[in-house]
Design a protein around this nucleic acid. Sequence first.
DNA 1: GTGAAAGCGCTAACAA
DNA 2: TTGTTAGCGCTTTCAC
Lengths: 334, 334
Amino acid sequence: MATIYDVAKEAGVSIATVSKVINETGRISEQTRKHVRAVMKELDYQPSLVASALTKKRTNTIGLMLPDLSNLFFAEVARSVEDRAHEKGYNVVICSTDNDAGKEEKYLAWLRQKRVDGIVLATGMQSDKSVKSLLDARLPVALVARESQRLAVDTVRVDDFLGGYLAASHLAQLGHERIAVIAENLRVSSSRERVEGYKKALEEAGLPFDESLVAVSSFDIEGGKEATRRLLALDRPPTAIFACNDLLAIGCIQVGRATGRSVPSQLSVVGFDNTLIASLAEPPLTTVAQPIPDLGRHVVDLITQEIDGGKQAKQRVVLVPELVLRGSTGPAPR
Amino acid sequence: MATIYDVAKEAGVSIATVSKVINETGRISEQTRKHVRAVMKELDYQPSLVASALTKKRTNTIGLMLPDLSNLFFAEVARSVEDRAHEKGYNVVICSTDNDAGKEEKYLAWLRQKRVDGIVLATGMQSDKSVKSLLDARLPVALVARESQRLAVDTVRVDDFLGGYLAASHLAQLGHERIAVIAENLRVSSSRERVEGYKKALEEAGLPFDESLVAVSSFDIEGGKEATRRLLALDRPPTAIFACNDLLAIGCIQVGRATGRSVPSQLSVVGFDNTLIASLAEPPLTTVAQPIPDLGRHVVDLITQEIDGGKQAKQRVVLVPELVLRGSTGPAPR
DNA sequence: GTGAAAGCGCTAACAA
DNA sequence: TTGTTAGCGCTTTCAC
């Protein structure tokens, strides 16, 4: 593998000159520039970014931590982060934590050792401690699709409260009076907010809040199924369910049908995220859409701004979710 | 950010000593080891992997190029690659190429400059040229879910021929006589092989091969829909379709229904991959399952072996696909 | 316009 | 068992 020395020698110039033509800095005559370029090509020279990272203190890499890359929502987030990062000249190193505190900590240390320029967190972060340590180390951090109320950190997310409100309002307007909600994990702010929005909607619709209609589960289809079974086994089962993500919603539909309820005529279901599977479900899922590409773009913009140091105040970008009406919701049965 | 010098000074030893305790090399007394460790912790010292990469000529990073991270099949592949890589101490840098030759080339150059230790390719690689250039540069390369007949390179994939054969045989056994196939792209070996397996199955079943029943499309739902429309508009339309991936299959089902055909009683559909969406489709998709976790594990094992230099001969690992029977296939209508 | 030389933070002989 | 020192491949003053 050719080094800058090889190029310099072959071109009959100093390494400083070669460096300047690589980086297009300093003043180099058109003639030598061309010549050096030719030699670089001839030698198939690839400047070492690890060497330059050592001197420049910039790796042009950002770390992305998320719960699970094979979860479509996060895969789509990752893709949008990747795209924007590439546009801005950054590589992305992805770490799936499975929401495991141990992995989280391990990967975080690893990313620091790799000297990534910044870290984007899409994980629920069990504790704020890890984030805090990054902040203390003055490493640029930004959260996406998650929030930490306690910490001053760049954040971009959708208005989860509004999302929950939209979902529940929609169901209330359809005449449902027993509306349940399935949340992933009440310790994660996004889930909590969605449930709060749901409560607000019930209140506005003059419906009583019933604690037993709030189910908590894991974040996958299985969790949705299991929670739905519990809800439908209630004395006065719900006629509509707001699931905090599309996967959970799919689980609802499956169990609803398995127990002989047709969707939406006997059971209405609303999801959240609007990933590809929402449109594939049968019936297609009415769901609260997150503008995923915008999430990715914004969070990368925030973190690169911070990396470049051109920014002082931390920002919280809140995007507006939108209710997408499809076939899984209908008038309350009577 | 503390450096090895800071630690050495604070601990009253030389940097060589610190280096030895970091890497657990050489012989260090238990006492100084403990002391140095304590100082490292106290200073929140994170050894710079970029500096050590410069001397060790190892970044402990592997690049992963794939068409699209937000495509569930590739997301699952990426997740399995990531997991195995982490187990072995490697980070993964992901690049989505959209099968765009320009991006492919750009990312490849980039990964080389980053001095990744190896590159895993899950892209269809328009031309073998890019792969060739990596091989020439003696950079470890491995293909997953793709093959290059012409190049001597580590490969792990599923037996696509067998997969196509299983799918078409199943349909033939159900009595279908007009069986169509939708392929992504005949320049990609995996698609080609699946079609060949399909042909073989037809032949064994004594069915004639009809060129007009082979449709080529893009790799997403839209492509599946569009191809299905063409097929169903034929004078003698097919009663069964083998789609080369689950997304295409979903498209088939949607168009089949939109044109008034019920699935599977009037139109049978088989997919490929067995991603999560196959089980979510309505009806659930009969599909050829790829053992994705094994693909990821094997390809990482192959490439790390090559990185470690403990391997000479290139290997081609071929895993066996399995037909998963669900609800999208049934007896031919009569 | 160009080059000499001093680092960047670490590893790996080789001495001591 | 520990320390000295010469790189690794590049960037960046600062002379010339």
